[in-house]
Computed example of a mutant assay.
Amino acid sequence: MQYVIAKRSILWGFVFLFALVLAILVNQYVVSLSIVSGTSMRPTLHNGDRLLVNKWELLFGNPHKGDVITFEDPEEKGRYLVKRVVGVPGDIIAVKSGQLYRNGHLAKEPYIDVSIEDGDVEPTKVLPGTVFVMGDNRHRYASRDSRYQSVGLVPYGLISGKVEIILWRPSLSAFL
């Protein structure tokens, strides 16, 4: 009897260990959950939104224009920012009179609801292995992004994943 109990305990221990290792691997390399803190991505994302972040896609490819990504804050290790990719390697990004220009052409940005209020940005060439990111909230000082030296061009190595879906938005919750 004790032999059977010991055998089952060992088996359950292996099952638990396998499940734990699998969960860690999935979180590290496949998908993770993230919570938005702040308003830099309004109107697309709201403070408190729960996001599903796809890490798998960027293991084998690079971000594209329009992708919403998460990346480690270059100034504060362990803190992550969420922004939209507006420029990929080779693009020349500029801001003139409240409008974003990509390669000399006015960029179409249906996801924003206001002109860029932070002033002009001189043409910046996006270097290989980096992306130019901006928050969707273009009100003055609303987003710390590639326009500012504290973030600058984001190297691929700092990108943790691509936001795929809003799992839950607390502002839509209501008590009955």
Rank of each mutant, 00 (worst) to 15 (best):
G13V: 13
L52F: 08
Q28Y: 08
R42N: 13
L17H: 06
G157H: 15
A19D: 07
L81K: 15
V131H: 12
T70S: 10
Q28C: 05
V121A: 04
V53T: 12
V154H: 06
E57W: 01
L106I: 08
G104P: 05
G104V: 01
V126S: 10
L22H: 14
K7R: 15
S9M: 13
R79V: 15
G66D: 14
A23R: 03
D113E: 11
G78A: 11
E57C: 00
K65N: 15
I116W: 05
V36T: 09
L45H: 03
L22I: 11
E76A: 12
K55L: 03
E109S: 07
R144Y: 05
Y3D: 13
P123A: 14
H46Y: 14
L176H: 09
V114H: 07
M134Q: 10
S171K: 07
S146V: 03
Q149S: 12
I24G: 07
D145G: 04
Y141A: 05
L100Q: 05
T124S: 06
T130H: 06
S115E: 08
G38N: 08
M41A: 03
G66Q: 02
V114T: 07
I159P: 07
L81S: 03
V133L: 03
V154W: 01
V121N: 02
A6M: 11
N47Q: 06
V36E: 06
A142I: 01
V4S: 06
F14Q: 02
H139F: 12
Y29P: 03
L17W: 09
V154Y: 02
E76S: 07
F175N: 06
V21L: 14
K125C: 01
I112E: 09
G104M: 01
L172C: 02
Q28D: 14
E72C: 09
P89D: 11
T124E: 14
A142V: 06
F71K: 06
V21G: 09
V82D: 07
E122Q: 11
A174H: 13
R144M: 05
N62P: 02
W56F: 14
S115N: 13
K77H: 12
I24Q: 11
Q149G: 01
D49Y: 15
H46W: 15
V154N: 10
E122F: 09
R138T: 00
A94C: 00
I165S: 05
R138P: 00
G48F: 01
P110G: 15
R138A: 01
S171F: 11
R84V: 06
L81A: 01
G38A: 08
S160M: 08
P170C: 11
E72P: 09
A23E: 11
K77W: 04
D113N: 12
L106T: 02
K108H: 13
I116N: 03
K125E: 01
P123V: 09
Y29R: 10
V85W: 08
A94Q: 12
W168Q: 12
T44W: 08
Y80N: 10
G119F: 00
W56R: 02
